[in-house]
Structure formats: structure tokens, C-alpha cells
């Protein structure tokens, strides 16, 4: 009996050594399989759509034969998302992006079971061995757009139509208010929230109330914002956008927008895998690293001094001489 066990042990040992010593098989250009889990839909003109387009852009860059993309939408609920994450992992997807902070627990629970799979989520800071976390510094763009509104407002009243006071919206709004104050201490910024991410009609009514109150610049975030942009359009009040450049739909209303370049983030994660890193990186989106950018709408005549001020501030943010603080700082 003991002999037999010894024999088996040596066989196993030899086998293990052989495997360990085998020359590494050359890495064939792997076809990256990416799965995307979205809390909202691919056409929400906000958080979910911006990420979807980023992933699609990377796919266009690499070619469809080198990158496969599967999307599943409307999975706000972490329980449903957890099922999707596990399914995708079992199907051998290489990179699974769960686009929301609410998926954190699920990811940290599932990821250890699939050490060869990369997972990603955000807005967050907490990473794991094979988990990326990403985090847009939305306050930076808020600050720059605040400068535009602060310098250009004639009524000194500016309205913010927010969804729920949480995550990105807080950062963006906080930066925006500081941006306005930095150039126009007399301007009043009224920050309001509809209390929901999807209350389009409420956002529209809120925008109308801001305009009734004299606001001549409006801004806001999340998918509900489209209701407010449309209301702004109907009264000819300019809008400052975030997440995406909504001037595609409202060319005469969206004056400028902060855009999340998810493409860069997704590209970095895909490249990291090639380098052999499956996670553990905290990917910040900022102007300095080019993952945030500011789009101006050419249809608007933004005065040169305003543009110049935005440009110098942008440089200061990029080189680190200006740090837009957050509520906690």
C-alpha cells in the first residue's frame, strides 16, 4: 500500500515538474472577450451609453476579430447582475465590466473563483487581484463648465438639475459650484435633485422652474437630464452637459460638455491583460490622463476671454497646480 502511494506520489511529482518546466506556449494574439453589464440602457445618453460607446470604440480600434463584445442592460439590481457576472465568467469571458458601484460586493465574492478573468467596476476605489476599479474625477469638468456659466451668465442665476445626491453627481455639482464661484462670486447656483435617475418629466419641470426663477444657464447629470435639456431647448437656454456630449441630439442647446473617455479606460484594461495584469489597478479618469475631455459646441460663440480662462484653468488642472477639492476635503 505504502509503496503504491509512494509510486503515485513520484509520478505526480514528475508530472508536475514536467508541466512547470514546459516552455511557455507563445501567446497567440488572444481574442479578447468583453462582457458589459449596464444598470441602464445603451441609449440613455448618460452613464451607461457613454461606457457602451467606449467599449465599442475599443472594438473598432482592435477589430472585431480581436475583440468580442456582449452587452446586457437594465441590470440595476446587484442580485441579477451577480448572476450575469458569474454566467459570463463561466463562459470564459476575459474582461467583465460591471458598470456601477453597486456591483462591488458581487464582484469581490465571485472574482476569487475565476482568477484568470478580469473584472472591473466603478465609481469606486477598491481593487482586487483581478478587479479593476475606475473613478471619474467629475468635479474637474464641473469646475471648468462652472467657469463658462459663471462668466457668461447675465442674470447671475444658474440651475443644476441633479438626479440623486450620490456618487458622480455630487462630485460634478460640487466642482461646478466652485467653478462658478471662482469667476463670479455674485452668481447664485441653485442645486436641486429630482430624487430619481429616471424622472424625465420631473427633470423637465425642474428645469422650467429654474428658468422661471431667472436661471440663464443649466446643467445636470444622469439619464433623467434629457428632460431638462429638452426644456432648456424650448426656451433657448444653454445647457452644459456631462458624461456624454448631448449636442448630437440638441445641437442648439448643449454649449459644452465634459466627456468620459471610457475608451481609454477599457483600452488600458485590455492592454493590462496582455502585460499579465488581471486587475489591481485603480483607474482614475481625469483631464491630466486624458480620460476626461471638454467638448465645445462650435455653434455657440463662446467669448474669447471665457475660452482663454477655461484653457488656462484646464492647463492648471492638468499640471496639478490646481486641484479641485471634493466635499470631503
Amino acid at each position: 500500500m505504502q509503496k503504491y502511494a509512494m509510486f503515485m506520489f513520484s509520478v505526480l511529482l514528475v508530472a508536475a515538474l514536467l508541466v512547470a518546466c514546459a516552455p511557455p506556449t507563445p501567446v497567440a494574439p488572444e481574442k479578447v472577450r468583453v462582457a458589459l453589464i449596464l444598470p441602464s440602457t445603451i441609449d440613455d445618453l448618460a452613464w451607461s451609453q457613454s461606457m457602451y460607446e467606449g467599449v465599442k470604440a475599443v472594438q473598432a480600434e482592435l477589430g472585431e476579430d480581436r475583440m468580442e463584445v456582449t452587452v446586457t442592460e437594465n441590470l440595476w439590481n446587484p442580485v441579477d447582475a451577480a448572476a450575469a457576472i458569474r454566467d459570463f465568467a463561466e463562459q470564459g469571458y476575459h474582461l467583465i465590466i460591471a458598470h456601477g458601484a453597486q456591483y462591488q460586493n458581487s464582484l469581490f465574492e465571485i472574482a476569487p473563483d475565476f482568477p484568470d478573468t478580469s473584472f472591473a467596476y466603478g465609481t469606486s476605489f477598491k481593487t482586487g487581484d483581478n478587479i479593476f476599479a475606475y473613478d471619474p474625477q467629475a468635479q474637474e469638468g464641473g469646475y471648468l463648465l462652472g467657469i463658462i456659466a459663471g462668466m457668461m451668465t447675465k442674470t447671475n442665476k444658474i440651475g443644476v438639475v441633479g438626479p440623486v445626491e450620490a456618487g458622480d453627481a455630487v462630485k460634478y455639482n460640487y466642482g461646478f459650484v466652485q467653478g462658478v464661484a471662482s469667476v463670479n462670486p455674485d452668481a447664485e447656483v441653485s442645486v436641486t435633485y429630482t430624487g430619481s435617475f429616471g424622472d424625465t418629466a420631473g427633470a423637465g419641470e425642474m428645469a422650467k422652474t429654474h428658468m422661471d426663477n431667472g436661471a440663464d444657464f443649466l446643467t445636470g447629470t444622469a439619464q433623467q437630464a434629457v428632460g431638462a435639456i429638452q426644456a432648456a431647448k424650448e426656451r433657448g437656454v444653454p445647457w452644459l452637459g456631462s458624461d456624454m456630449d448631448q449636442s448630437v441630439v440638441w445641437p442648439d442647446t448643449v454649449m459644452a460638455a465634459q466627456v468620459y473617455n471610457w475608451k481609454e479606460v477599457v483600452r488600458r484594461m485590455v492592454d493590462a491583460r496582455v502585460e499579465g495584469k488581471k486587475g489591481g489597478e485603480h483607474l482614475s479618469l481625469s483631464f491630466a490622463n486624458g480620460r476626461l475631455s471638454l467638448h465645445f459646441n462650435d455653434r455657440f460663440n463662446i467669448p474669447a476671454d471665457v475660452k482663454a480662462k477655461v484653457e488656462t484653468t484646464l492647463q492648471a488642472i492638468k499640471d496639478g497646480s490646481l486641484v479641485v477639492p471634493l466635499p470631503s476635503e
Partner: peptide, 8 residues
């Protein structure tokens, strides 16, 4: 009211 259609 909204003059557009969005999901939900």
C-alpha cells in the same frame, strides 16, 4: 410635455 421619448 417632454416632447421626446425615453425608456420608462
Amino acid at each position: 410635455l417632454n416632447n421626446m421619448y425615453v425608456d420608462n
